[in-house]
Design a protein around this nucleic acid. Structure first.
Length: 1105
RNA sequence: GGGGGAGUAGCUCAAUCGGUCAGAGCGGCGGGCUUAUAUCCCGCUGGUUCCAGGUUCGAGUCCUGGCUCCCCUACCA
């Protein structure tokens, strides 16, 4: 017997029960064992940053991951399920700093890098544990560590990292120091999630960097780069994107007095007053005209096109020249007296005017302040012209020594002091706020500065100014970016615009800045010899050991992180001098990019790697990843193997609040994952996610969840109905049922629909189209509930025909089980809860989870009957039309009518007696008759199929359409038709029936229904009987009686014609009619019948008397 | 600043190769069915398909220009 089922399910509680079942029965482990050795489908998990609890935006992507892994598991495919965590990088550091109340890198160094790095590791372990729990709650089935183990390691790490401890692995216990166990997480002997801070991960990146160096693509760049003064680090091009914000800066116009032209000055505009200390030149444009203007005693030079905007007050133009005329003029800089400037200018340099193509007149004065120490374009220009460089600020954005009163001040905050100073010394001209887009640190929102730095880069190779297909092999060999593009071409991008985005990024990508002047991250294995300038790059831990000349003992036993690895020295490969590692750590996208190698055991098990590489599938949110994970994987895989790291990539957009804005705590539209899981349940969430169009942002909120839940409740109610009546009837699947071919048309229809849906959903999911899959599933569930079940209810509840009843139960059972299997990848909890009751409780030999069953397409295929499905669609259309007619005629569906007529479009459909009976029942008429186009009620109409004839007929189309509309048609013997003198072949038109004017009919796309609206006394009496029955059922419901309670019924005086129906009404309502007046106090009601009001009353029939 | 995409009902979105009447869901209003249903069905309401031109027998769809929004990209001083 099935377990009883409530009609008001608590999905959340049920999900927790299912989680417990999966755990107790080891369902996931059994699934993997079942599929072991099957065809491989390689999924690679993009690592989630283990730095905070998981958000609902993560849940969207992780729902996709789980959906497709479960689906492919149902196809019997063998998979890797390894979960991954991203661990290293500034985002973790920033949070640890915040916890400690630190404000600068000096705080970290004073605290101790070793303790700081340990805290970073602990934070990662803490949130890895938390995210693991949340992912389990989401229903994900992945290979990960017991969260308790991660927490224990984190705790031990804080106390005694070198203590030896033991952890349970898949093949037995593993013993090592705490620190090394943490470094070995995710390796085969320990199992579970991979962590990008792992030893193997770092080691393989070293190998990658050594290879890059071997090919000559690694270099140290001296340049001005965007710099975050709070984080004390440069930003790579990848990181620059998020942080552009509108910002108001001082728009300052200063005067640079000309040395050789007494009383004359250049006017120069800047939005970064702090860079004025570093001015070495003023640039003019070759195609810009310059004028000298007089204002009072002053003479100013500026671009002609900027006169109106740049100058304040009245002026007189005295002279006009080309930009080239100004070149070479010497001027006095505003900060020439500062010691740093004096020493930079020591070899006789003087400020002068230079020519630069980029100068324009859109903003400012047409004369550009050039400070090569404070801007990268300035730097390039300065390099070309041999200008001195004055770099004014340190890592924290403070002025260095040698800048007089400015030394020690925060550069971004000195604008007002500089203005005051310039004003006092006569350099000031005008100040006006200026709003522009300005880059900010993506991590801490601090406005960036441009700072002179040494950083490490991977060269991307030249960009050729020619179409890619015209490149020679030599050109491609010389340019990494084009090699990556070739790899991109071999990947399927979904949605397909992804490919263009990635190629666009690669075309515009500058050299990849991989260094960061921070603490927690990949230790770059670069050894830069101070003695001879040789650069050695170490390709792995073993190589480091072999080449170490000092410090190895102290390092041994530690993970390859700062500060421990910093103490190891090697001998320079050229001059033999002892060399230290550079202090920088690596760009964190290196960590994630190596994952297709490190997690697949590229180094220690090449055969295994070759089986799983490239991945068949990855999925991540598109925004951002083109230049991050996708890019780094592509770059590393191209360098190491010249091969695509994944074959298909599915991208999706962002999760927004229900109000269409990004989720933001202070806006009140943010929803935490845990809260969503507790209140809406994760299946509801997963259904929303699966239905959402991936290329659009999803608007996530409680109302959307309610809509989603309603859909699941429809299914649940079908299921609850089935269970209720199967229990009453004591039916189980063991009972022999008639062959499907012998079952009623509705049964054959719903099973055909199930078969068709399974095929469509499989096709859609294989094609990574969850939207298409959910649409097909929604349509199927709707048909199951509102058509199949609604029309079949009597067969379950009170059928006299035992054989028919068994057919109904068997059909609905099979349809529901098929539904569970089709829903399993999307709704793992609901589907398994229903399946458990539908199958496991009654069949001890069946698999005990829906997730262990295979995908059902093949099993259902025999049920498919597409012709029947099309005919049923017509029947449904006919019912809709009849309802419309009833509504217009104000005849309730309860009122029986004598008959209806039906005309079908000419589509070769067969609506046999079965379907006519079904339509008749549904619209409550005695009989439905098919009419043909000879009937007096309708006439034939021709619908020209425009897409077919349009090209052939051209301008005569309007006449053809007009003729078709007016019915001016000649039907030819061969089936062709003539309209407006033009003959159309049979396959160029569709012949439809349409109503002749003046009859009571409804029509839709050739389907015509005519309703006999005449009421006879017999029909009215029958309608009254139905009304009476409904009132009794209402009253039963009101009295809260059980479905199978017998009742005593009192009915007031009825007209004789209605009274004849009373016995059947009594049967329907399980009533025994009692004569006389009802006892007082019983539930009663008044029914408005055609013959007048009638009072009814009832009570539960006493069991024994 | 450069490049790309999108504008369809109050909201979220459909509309096949250019094809006859631009449709759903949600919302609102009215009605109906129902002892599976907090479901569902029917009807009504709601549209200058962003604007202006053009191509075509025919344009939501293609072309040109404009407006608005989004995304990508960018240190123009």
């Amino acid at each position: 017997m099935f377990r009883p089922v409530t009609s008001k399910p608590d999905f959340v509680a049920q999900e927790h029960e299912i989680l417990a079942l999966w755990r107790d029965r080891r369902t996931f482990a059994r699934l993997r064992a079942q599929n072991a050795g099957g065809p491989k489908w390689s999924f690679l998990d993009g690592p989630i940053t283990a730095n905070n609890p998981m958000g609902v935006h993560h849940a969207w992507g992780r729902a996709y991951k789980d959906l497709y892994q479960r689906f492919h598991a149902m196809l019997g495919e063998d998979q890797r399920f390894q979960n991954g965590f991203d661990c290293q990088g500034l985002w973790v550091e920033v949070n640890v700093e915040r916890d400690l109340g630190f404000t600068s890198k000096r705080d970290i160094e004073a605290y101790g890098i070793d303790r700081f790095v340990t805290l970073c590791k602990q934070r990662v372990l803490t949130y890895a544990a938390r995210q693991t729990e949340q992912s389990i709650r989401l229903g994900m089935w992945m290979d990960w560590n017991d969260p308790a183990d991660l927490r224990r390691l984190g705790e031990l790490l804080g106390h005694e990292p070198s203590a030896v401890t033991t952890i349970e692995g898949p093949d037995g216990p593993v013993t090592d120091t705490v620190e090394m166990l943490v470094g070995r997480l995710g390796m085969p002997d320990i199992g579970g999630s991979y962590f990008t801070f792992g030893n193997e991960n770092n080691d393989l990146i070293w190998g990658f960097l050594a290879e890059v160096h071997r090919r000559g693509w690694l270099y140290k760049g001296h340049d001005t780069m965007p710099w975050c003064p709070r984080c004390g680090t440069g930003l790579s091009q990848m990181e620059m994107n998020e942080g552009y914000q509108d910002r108001e800066d001082p728009g300052l116009t200063v005067r640079f007095p000309l040395v050789d032209r007494q009383g004359e000055s250049l006017l120069v505009w800047t939005t970064t007053p702090w860079t004025l200390t570093s001015n070495v030149a003023a640039a003019v444009g070759p195609n810009v005209r310059y004028v000298k203007v007089r204002q009072g005693e002053d003479r100013f030079w500026l671009g002609k096109g900027t006169l109106k905007t740049a100058l304040q007050g009245p002026f007189t133009v005295e002279e006009e020249v080309a930009g080239s005329e100004l070149v070479g003029w010497r001027y006095t800089g505003p900060y020439d007296d500062l010691p740093a400037v004096r020493s930079a200018f020591a070899d006789e340099y003087e400020h002068r005017v230079v020519l630069w193509d980029e100068v324009g007149e859109d903003e400012g004065t047409g004369i550009v302040h050039i400070a090569p120490g404070c801007g990268s374009e300035d730097y390039q220009l300065g390099k070309m012209l041999g200008l001195p460089v004055v770099g004014p600020i340190d890592e924290d954005g403070r002025y260095l020594d040698g800048f007089g009163w400015l030394s020690g001040l925060d550069a971004p905050n000195v604008a007002q002091q500089i203005v005051d100073d310039l004003e006092r010394r006569g350099f000031f001209y005008h100040l006006e706020p200026f709003t522009h887009r300005y880059p900010h640190c993506w991590r801490c929102a601090t406005p960036l500065l441009y700072r002179l730095v040494d950083e490490w880069f991977i060269a991307m190779g030249p960009v050729y100014d020619q179409p890619r297909e015209t490149l020679t092999t030599e050109q491609v060999e010389a340019s990494l970016r084009y090699q990556i593009m070739e790899v991109v071409d071999r990947i399927r991008w979904i949605p397909d615009f992804g490919s263009d985005r990635e190629l666009d990024w690669l075309r515009n990508m500058h050299d990849w800045m991989i260094s960061k002047k921070r603490y927690w991250g990949l230790a770059l294995p670069i050894y830069d010899c101070g003695a001879c300038g040789t650069i050695d790059v170490i390709g792995g831990r073993e190589e480091l050991h072999a080449r170490a000349i000092a410090g190895w003992e102290a390092f041994e036993g530690h993970t390859p992180h700062r500060p421990w690895v910093d103490g190891v020295r090697i001998a320079c490969s050229r001059c033999g001098a002892p060399v230290e590692r550079i202090k920088d750590v690596g760009n964190p996208w290196l960590d994630a990019g190596i994952v297709p190698f490190s997690t697949l055991h590229y180094r220690e098990a090449p055969d295994y790697w070759a089986q799983w590489f490239p991945a068949d599938f990855i999925t991540e949110s598109f925004p951002g990843q083109f230049r991050n994970w996708f890019y780094s994987m592509l770059a590393m895989s191209t360098v190491l193997k010249r091969q695509e790291p994944f074959k298909t990539i599915f991208g999706y957009a962002l999760v927004f609040g229900e109000d269409g804005r990004p989720m933001h705590k202070s806006w009140g539209n943010a929803i935490e994952f845990d809260e969503a899981a507790d209140r809406m349940g994760v299946d509801v969430m997963r259904w929303m996610f699966a239905k959402a169009r991936p290329e659009e942002n999803i608007l996530f909120g409680w109302h959307a969840a309610d809509e989603s839940r309603r859909e699941l409740l429809i299914l649940w109610n079908v299921y609850a109905f089935f269970i209720t009546y199967a229990r009453l009837a004591v039916w189980t699947p063991a009972e022999a049922a008639p062959p499907v071919a012998d079952r009623p048309v509705l049964d054959r229809w719903i099973l055909s629909r199930a078969a068709g849906t399974a095929a469509v959903v499989e096709d859609r999911l294989r094609d990574v189209d969850a939207v298409g899959a959910t649409r097909a599933l929604s349509a199927f569930m709707d048909g199951l509930s509102t058509w199949y079940l609604r029309l079949s209810r009597r067969r379950f509840s009170r059928s006299d025909d035992a054989r028919d009843r068994v057919a109904a139960f068997a059909t609905l059972h099979e349809a529901l089980v098929a539904t569970c299997r089709m829903l399993a990848p999307i709704l793992p909890f609901l589907s398994d809860a229903m399946y458990g009751n539908l199958v496991t409780t009654v069949d001890g030999t069946a698999r005990d989870s829906v997730h262990l069953t295979g995908w059902p397409t093949a099993e259902l295929a025999g049920h498919r009957d597409e012709r029947l499905e099309a005919s049923m669609a017509s029947a449904q259309g006919a019912v809709d039309l009849a309802r419309t007619l009833r509504s217009i005629a104000q005849l309730k569906t309860r009122q029986p009518l004598a008959g209806a007529w039906l005309a079908l479009p000419d589509r070769g459909l067969a609506v046999g007696p079965d379907l006519l009976r079904l339509i008749a029942d549904e619209i409550n008429v005695k009989a439905v008759t098919i009419i043909d186009d000879e009937s007096a009620l309708i006439e034939r109409r021709v619908k020209p199929l425009l897409p077919k004839i349009g090209k052939r007929l051209g301008s005569s189309i309007p006449a053809v359409i007009a003729a078709a509309r007016s019915g001016d048609v000649r039907f030819e013997a061969d089936g062709s038709v003539t309209l407006a003198g033009i003959t159309l072949a049979p396959d160029e038109v569709e012949v439809q029936a349409t109503p002749r004017p003046g009859t009571a009919v409804a029509e839709d796309d050739g389907l015509v229904v005519v309703l006999d609206t005449a009421l006879t006394p017999e029909l009215i009496a029958e309608g009254d009987a139905r009304e009476l029955q409904r009132a009794i059922q209402d009253l039963r419901k009101e009295a809260a009686l059980e479905l199978d309670d017998q009742i005593d019924l009192w009915v007031g005086a009825l007209p004789p014609a209605v009274a004849t129906h009373l016995p059947s009404v009594a049967t329907e309502t399980l009533a025994e009619v009692v004569e006389g007046e009802p006892p007082a106090g019983l539930p009663q009601a008044t029914v408005e019948l055609d013959g007048g009001p009638v009072v009814i009353a009832l009570r539960r029939h006493a069991d024994d008397g």
